[in-house]
Design a protein around this nucleic acid. Sequence first.
DNA 1: TGCTTATTTTTCCATTTGATCAAAAATTAT
DNA 2: ATAATTTTTGATCAAATGGAAAAATAAGCA
Lengths: 213, 213
Amino acid sequence: MSDRTARATKTRKRTRIQVVNEEKILEAALEVFARYGFKGAAVDQIAAAAGMSKPNLLYYFRSKKALYIAVLRRTLEMWLQPLEDIAAEGDPEAEIRDYIARKVAFSRSHAVESRLFAMEIIQGAPILKEVLETRLRELVEDKVRVIEAWVAAGKIAPVDPHHLIFTLWASTQHYADFDAQIRALLGAGAEDFYLSADDALSDLLLKGLLPRP
Amino acid sequence: MSDRTARATKTRKRTRIQVVNEEKILEAALEVFARYGFKGAAVDQIAAAAGMSKPNLLYYFRSKKALYIAVLRRTLEMWLQPLEDIAAEGDPEAEIRDYIARKVAFSRSHAVESRLFAMEIIQGAPILKEVLETRLRELVEDKVRVIEAWVAAGKIAPVDPHHLIFTLWASTQHYADFDAQIRALLGAGAEDFYLSADDALSDLLLKGLLPRP
DNA sequence: TGCTTATTTTTCCATTTGATCAAAAATTAT
DNA sequence: ATAATTTTTGATCAAATGGAAAAATAAGCA
């Protein structure tokens, strides 16, 4: 009836070894997929990074694609979290500052996940497209309404909510995705630079470039 | 002494066929490399997209890597152009509005180039690292000084020039790199949306989110 | 303990991939 | 037209790749 192998994580309870190994694999896969994309990543390479043989890896995940999907599913959840936390009732300035802080923190602590996500989107989102069109879309529409309400109440300047959301995503994510470029430009000073990112970004987006009277 | 094959574009004058074919190859390679990255792209695939056989493609470009470098070199030039055009003497607001307009236009007209560039950086910039550390670095330092002068003169609010430059890059480039995501979220309305991008972005970054008195 | 299941390794295979080369075809120059 | 050159192709190779099967080993549990 159902799968007899250890991969059948749905039906049977997961073994201790299973939990450990799947974790090791997912972590290694994240790294490799983020750097080389789906096609460019080699199962052998992932297995080596996870400290096991290729057949053994394929014992835990049926196929390269199944593994890719598993890694991506996880990543998406993390990626969505900060946006879900934006509250309609809160003070706009505080909410946005917090959102930026959360996103920048995510870009720092989960830079690899961020890059994997970017990689998937650049490749046309073959796997994530469906989720983007349904779940993310609803979530975004929800937050668009929040922003529209803020605008209507005169709490923030009249901005197109979608452009605002995309700018927030872009500017915060940049610190993870273009890390290599930032390091090439700033050299050793990059680490300190990152610390000032969320304040600098918040100030720029909230107060704008033109001097305030 | 020197290469006798058609690839020796340095020594001999380029044939008509050579010019045409190299152009076709570079275009096809751009597309494929941008979608699959260096490792993920197959020479065969590029050759097919260029309408020729694989050995024939390799007759024009010695190796996959040589082709990748050629494509990347071109792309970098295009990518740098808008930044070089920022003038120190100009009015800051106008200069930044123009820069945003140029970058957004580039993201629209050369979305594939933009994605290739992003792909290379995400993968750690193995080929571009050197250029980033030298030429781009000098260029950025130059523009940093321009921005610092604007701040010192009180023409714009006190911002960290690096953060400003990165935010400009990120927010404009996002429209190309995350095109798949934007389309998933906006559906058919995406096309119109893009038209409003540079004004929306300029207003947001110049005036900020908080209402002005 | 023995029996069952879970895990790992060894071996193998069919494709795909980047690359080469000699010969054929097409183009250009004389 | 004929010779010289450039372009294209077909055959082929060695390495890498995703995956399957089977055999060997280790856990878990009655």
